[in-house]
Amino acid sequence: MGLVERGVLSKPAVKPLTWLLNYSRKYSLWMFQWGLACCAIEMAAALAGPRYDMMRLGVIPFPASPRQADLVVVSGTVTDKMAPAIKRLYEQIPDPKYVISMGSCSNCGGPYWDSYSVTKGVDQIIPVDVYVPGCPPRPEALLEGIVMLQARIQNEGIGNTELAARWQGEPITVGGADA
C-alpha cells in the first residue's frame, strides 16, 4: 500500500486516520506463545485464568505460526543454547512486531546473572519494547505491561516517525536529545 512507508499517515492532516489504524492494531494483537520457564506459568495464568483473562484486552494467544503473529512475550530464562532459536523465530515474525520481555531472567539474566550458560537478557539478541520486572511478575503486572504497550502503539505516528520505522523494521530510538 505504501501509505505508511511514504509517510502519508504521519502527517497531521490525517491524524484521525492514523489514530484509527493504531486503535484497531492495539486491540487485535496476536501473541506468539514463547513461554520458556517459570514466567510462562504466570503468562498462562494471565491468558487462560478466568481471573486475569488477557483476551479481554484483545490479545489472542493462538496464532498458528510465527508468520501470523505480531507480539512476542519472552517469558523465562534465555540460555546460550536457545538464543539462535529465539533470533530465528523473531526474524520470522513480519513487521510491525513488538516484544515484551517478561521476568527478570529475560530482562537482565535475573538470578542466574553469573551462570556460564545464560544469556544476560534477551535484549542482547532482539530489541525489546516493554520490560516487565518480577520473578515471576504477577499476571496483573503482565497485563500492565500489555496496556503500556497498547498506549505506545496508540501514539505511534502521531507527532513522531515511529509508525514508518516500525512498518519497515527499522530500529526505534527511544528518548534522545529532542524528547
Partner: peptide
C-alpha cells in the same frame, strides 16, 4: 564447567 579450575567469568 563443574571443575573447580573452570572460572565463572561473570
Amino acid at each position: 564447567p563443574l571443575r573447580k579450575d573452570f572460572p565463572l567469568l561473570a
